[in-house]
Simulated assay, not measured.
Amino acid sequence: MQKQKRQNRLKIFEARFDRIMQLKQKDRKEPAERLMKDMEEVFNIPYSLEPDWLRKNEDVMDLYEKVNMEAL
């Protein structure tokens, strides 16, 4: 994925996360789960995280981990 296109998509996901965080705690789980699934598809997040992928996608993983905390 092109760098600019990737950054634009990441910004969209960050905006979605910001909207989720404005919801009441009890209403965050389902939107957070959807956001995680969308991120997995768009950024090809591997099921078993590989060190090389992590190194190249730190910003994606930072957001993904934040979203994951809301999906628990």
Rank of each mutant, 00 (worst) to 15 (best):
K56M: 08
L63M: 06
K56T: 06
L10F: 08
K11E: 14
R34F: 15
N8C: 11
L10C: 14
M1S: 11
M1C: 08
I45A: 06
K3P: 03
E58P: 00
R55Q: 11
M39N: 02
A15G: 08
W53C: 02
Q4F: 11
K37Y: 12
E70C: 05
E14Q: 14
P31N: 07
L63N: 03
R34K: 14
K37M: 07
Q22V: 08
L49Y: 10
F17Y: 15
E33G: 00
R16Y: 14
M1Y: 12
L35K: 00
F13N: 08
V60A: 03
L23V: 07
M36I: 11
R55F: 07
V42M: 02
L23W: 04
A71G: 03
I20E: 00
Y47T: 12
E50V: 09
N68C: 03
A32M: 02
D38V: 00
I45N: 02
R19Y: 12
K5T: 10
R19S: 13
R9P: 01
E70Q: 11
I45G: 04
V67M: 01
D52C: 03
L23K: 10
I45H: 06
D38Q: 15
L63E: 01
N44Q: 14
K66W: 01
K37E: 10
L63D: 01
D27M: 12
I20K: 03
K37G: 01
E33P: 00
L63A: 05
Q4C: 05
E58H: 09
D52Q: 07
F17G: 02
E50N: 13
P51H: 07
M36A: 10
W53H: 09
L23H: 10
M61S: 03
K56I: 02
D62A: 09
A32C: 03
Q2A: 15
W53G: 02
R19V: 09
M61A: 07
D18M: 08
K26M: 13
V67T: 04
P51S: 08
L54Q: 08
F13M: 15
R9A: 13
E14C: 08
D59L: 04
I45P: 00
P31M: 06
M39H: 04
M36T: 02
R55M: 10
E14Y: 11
F17D: 02
L49I: 15
E50R: 13
L49C: 04
K24G: 07
K11I: 13
D52M: 07
K5A: 12
N8H: 11
L49N: 03
P46A: 13
N57T: 07
E30H: 11
Q22L: 13
D27L: 11
P46W: 06
Q4E: 10
E41I: 12
K29Y: 04
P31Y: 11
M61V: 05
K3D: 07
R6W: 14
K3G: 04
K24C: 03
R9C: 07
Q2L: 14
E70F: 07
A15D: 12
Q7R: 14
Q25R: 13
E50H: 10
